[in-house]
Design a binder for these strands. Structure first.
Length: 545
DNA sequence: TCTTCTGTCACTTTTGAATTGT
DNA sequence: AACAATTCAAAAGTGACAGAAG
């Protein structure tokens, strides 16, 4: 399963210069918390059935013990303090700093899937004026949610813990029709990457009654997506730290470039900017409080050792949720628990509705043309290995491609790209919006699953020190609850790929993870009682649901 | 007019095949 | 013959820039 090359991406990160590793060790990650007492590989590997509950309970303990530390935290902080920007291009652009984590506390023998999604941090659109990021209006409708699954997935806990886990090949795009599976973002919007760890043991994967997973959020990894850099400080940080930008370091020529750039650092303040400031006085670096704060009553928390807080959700009663920014320095684990009917309905206005979104002829054609690999993606029939070093974006169908979809006996598709429909594992803002205002370029069902929630506003990028902590959610999903949602509702069919971009079918693990996350979203989208959960990371804010 | 986006450029690093040496 | 080390070209990634688009 894990070929030598399959480890390469992680190894690359692991071979990173010394200081980076030092920073990683300085992250808020306790020493490895090995398997919980009583945990055994046999229990984790027990097949579903009568023992599923026991296995689930064990998994719950296990997932709780997983700690994740952000690699190059200091570098991330530098960027965060300046207001991280990430270039997005039509072809897709990597993130820098790249997302690398050190994971501990896994059961060495249990298999896990590590994946990342990127969700809106708030519902604002931004503009860079007067050397500051300012709110420029309401956010565009969220782009189709996609997941980036680590190429090594699924792999054992021992593998993940052996070295840094690098997501450096993750790419961001602003191409709504991106066929490569890159994560689609809107320019000039603020986003928050999230790491999900899903237990995917061979014998206790998503087919089991309960599936354990956890989510980790590092506030300092939030960023504003741009098509060209706005803040000269960010440009310089990128040039200084990104080896690929070495060509822009130091020389006379680059000095000239810098001089040119610096004129951009202090732009003339236009009337519109002044008007904007008057309209939005909170914009100038003041942390805007997310509109969803205060729903923490729905959350449960448990005191965790060393001041951290761990939250365990009850199986079958836990939606994935998004997290607020946190400025505390302590480590928190959040676990969100859905209230029976205490959710909030938030109908956030958008700059334009999906129906108003223009749909070009090209887009129309694109989606109506039968993709050559479309159906192939629907037959995740075998346990394929994820090709090492390949992009690991998954797009396309959901339940259809899941290993539990009942199409397992189909022959493996001759695909090579690991595209997989991404799923927003979190509830959406507004059910009404999702169900009645389809985003035209995508099938309605796709839209319904990809309307992404927005995180409560993260700490202000330029004026607030980055949080020293990250958020985690531990979850225990009821698979039966997932299944009854009906699998057909939602994934978009895979779209066409340019010639030469072959794809490999995602493994059942990955498909299952996708379905699993998707189903969470879907289940929530049908229940207006819960739209969004959030909470500030203080003990006082958390009460039993 | 202004802001944002796109394609292209010159530059770099990365990658992997081919070649050479042991 | 097998393996390791080296070389080199192609591929991929980078920010800058000019012009287009809205």
């Amino acid at each position: 399963m894990l070929q030598d090359k399959g480890l390469s991406e992680s190894e690359e990160a692991f071979r990173a210069p010394g200081p980076a590793l030092g920073e990683a060790s300085a992250a808020n990650v306790p020493e490895p918390a090995l398997a919980a007492p009583g945990l055994s590989g046999a229990a984790l590997g027990s097949p579903p059935g009568p023992g599923a509950d026991v296995a689930a309970a064990t998994a719950e303990q296990t997932i709780e013990n997983i700690k994740v530390g952000l690699h190059e935290k200091e570098l991330w902080k530098k960027f965060h303090e300046a207001g991280t920007e990430m270039i997005i291009t039509k072809a897709g652009r990597r993130m820098f700093p790249s997302y690398k984590v050190k994971v501990t506390g896994m059961n060495p023998k249990t298999k896990y899937i590590l994946l990342i999604d990127i969700v809106p941090a708030d519902d604002h659109r931004y503009k860079f004026c007067d050397n500051k990021w300012m709110v420029a209006g309401k956010a565009e409708p969220a782009m189709p949610g996609r997941l980036y699954v680590h190429p090594d997935s699924p792999a054992t806990g021992a593998h993940w813990m052996r070295q840094l886990v690098s997501f450096q090949k993750l790419k961001l795009t602003n191409n709504h029709l991106d066929p490569f599976g890159h994560i689609i973002l809107n320019s000039m919007h603020k986003y928050q990457p999230r790491l999900h760890i899903v237990k995917a043991d061979e014998n206790n994967a998503f087919g089991s009654k309960n599936t354990a997973f956890c989510t980790h959020v590092f506030p300092e990894t939030s960023f504003i997506s741009v098509t060209s850099y706005q803040n000269h400080k960010i440009t310089q940080l990128k040039i200084e730290n990104n080896p690929f930008a070495k060509g822009f370091r130091g020389s006379d020529d680059s000095d000239l470039r810098v001089a040119r750039l610096q004129s951009k650092e202090y732009p003339v303040i236009s009337k519109s900017i002044m008007r904007q400031r008057l309209i939005s006085p909170q914009l100038s670096g003041t942390p805007d409080v997310g509109p969803l704060l205060g729903t923490h009553q729905a959350l449960q928390h448990y005191q965790h050792e060393n001041g951290a807080h761990s939250q365990l959700a009850e199986a079958q009663d836990l939606p994935l949720s998004t997290f607020p920014a946190q400025r505390d320095s302590s480590l928190f684990y959040h676990c969100l628990k859905r209230r029976a009917d205490g959710g909030r309905h938030l109908d956030l206005p958008c700059k334009r509705s999906y129906l108003e979104a223009p749909s070009s002829v090209g887009e129309d054609h694109y989606f109506r043309s039968p993709p050559p690999y479309d159906q192939q993606m629907l037959s995740p029939s075998y346990c394929s290995e994820v090709t090492p070093r390949e992009a690991c974006m998954y797009s396309g169908s959901g339940p259809e491609i899941a290993g539990v979809s009942g199409v397992d006996d189909l022959p493996p598709p001759p695909l090579s790209c690991n595209m997989w429909t991404s799923v927003s594992p979190y509830t959406s803002y507004s059910v009404q919006t999702m169900e009645t205002v389809p985003y035209q370029p995508f099938p309605t069902h796709f839209t319904a699953t990809t309307m992404m929630p927005r995180l409560p506003t993260l700490s202000a990028q330029s004026s607030q020190p980055p949080g020293n902590t990250h958020f985690s959610v531990y979850n225990q999903l009821s698979q039966s609850q997932v299944r009854e949602r009906g699998p057909s509702a939602s994934f978009p069919r895979e779209r066409g790929l340019p010639p030469g971009c072959e794809r490999k079918p995602p493994s059942p693990h990955l498909n299952a993870a996708n379905e699993f996350l998707y189903s969470q979203t879907f289940s929530l989208s049908r229940e207006s009682s819960l739209q969004y959960h959030s909470g500030m990371g203080t003990v006082e804010n958390w009460t039993d649901g």
